[in-house]
Simulated assay, not measured.
Amino acid sequence: MFNHQTSIAGFAMSDLVRVACAAMVAVLSSSVLADVKPDPGDYTALPKGTDVVVLYQQNPRGDEVYSGGHKVADDLDLKMNVGVLRLIHFTDFFGTGYTWDPQVVIPFGHQEVGLSDSKTSGLGDITFGGTLWTIADLERNEHLGWSVFFTAPTGSDKDEGFGLSNNRWAVDFQVGYIKGLTDKISWDVIAETEFYSDQRSTDSKKDPLFQLHNHLRYNFTPETYAAITYRHNWGAKETLEGATLATSHDNGTAGFTVATMVNKQLQLMGQVMRDVTVREGVKIDNSLQFRLAYFY
């Protein structure tokens, strides 16, 4: 699955420039949940038999573009309006007594790039997989989960710089731990590694991406919490026939989240994220996210 080869003999310099420009914008995909970013509380193992329908609405905005730590553009005028449908089912892991949650993530959205006066809309790359919990203690608020997610190149406008469509397979491994430090304070830490196949139409290669997510949550009540977040990622250098399309990441993002249970089945979440350091890619000045989760 990860060895798709495409001949690019005679690949013209104009094509190389086009792919490099597309890669510059497509790097945003890692900021728009294409790699299944965990929100505060996501590594909580819910009771077996629980189903969850989650709908996200995200609005990333960015002007500055960095490559190798140097600003290469400051007028990109990138605007994205992204929706994500996520379907989750908590169940027993094949009679072992452990909990796992097979799920599917379907992104879709609209993108505008003022610098190139381009507009793109459509379906993003679909992700499927799940988490297996080896610690699932709701009473003590301690959870340890091991995740595998596969992303398929199903998105629209492949190779045209659409941030939700990478035209390559990816496999994402995560391990997440939640620990209740006090009755009201919890710490979530998630380590993640994502591997990529060669890009299917150009054969460009992409190194693994490494990420670390930290969430510190304060529970005002059992139904309502606020959280501060810091994420950092490294790697993901992309090359084509020896030419560098994107240098390695060394990017950091900070955020703030508020969530509350409206009733026993419905949760509302609001979140704001902002890149605080970017070595490679588009710097997101602000990204607002709203999440609606229905539990049944």
Rank of each mutant, 00 (worst) to 15 (best):
T96W: 03
G97R: 08
G97Y: 11
Y98A: 14
P102F: 09
Q103K: 07
V104P: 08
V104D: 04
P107D: 00
P107F: 02
G109Y: 10
H110D: 13
E112P: 00
E112M: 06
V113T: 11
S118E: 14
G122V: 12
L123E: 06
L123W: 10
G124H: 12
I126K: 09
T127W: 08
G130S: 14
T131D: 15
L132T: 13
D137H: 12
L138Q: 15
R140Q: 15
R140H: 13
N141R: 15
E142N: 15
H143K: 06
G145H: 04
W146N: 07
S147A: 15
S147I: 07
V148F: 13
F149E: 07
F150W: 13
F150C: 08
T151E: 05
T151V: 06
A152C: 11
A152K: 03
P153D: 04
T154L: 08
E160V: 07
F162T: 06
L164I: 13
S165L: 05
S165I: 13
N166V: 08
W169C: 01
W169I: 04
A170E: 06
V171Q: 05
Y177Q: 14
I178F: 05
I178W: 00
I178K: 09
I178E: 08
K179S: 12
L181Q: 06
D183G: 13
D183Y: 07
W187C: 11
W187I: 14
W187Y: 15
D188V: 10
I190L: 10
I190T: 15
A191R: 06
E192L: 01
E192A: 05
Y196W: 04
Y196G: 08
D198C: 00
D198I: 08
Q199I: 02
Q199R: 06
S201M: 03
D203L: 03
L209M: 01
Q211Y: 02
Y218M: 02
N219W: 05
T221R: 02
P222K: 00
T224C: 07
Y225L: 03
I228H: 04
T229N: 13
Y230D: 08
R231F: 09
H232T: 12
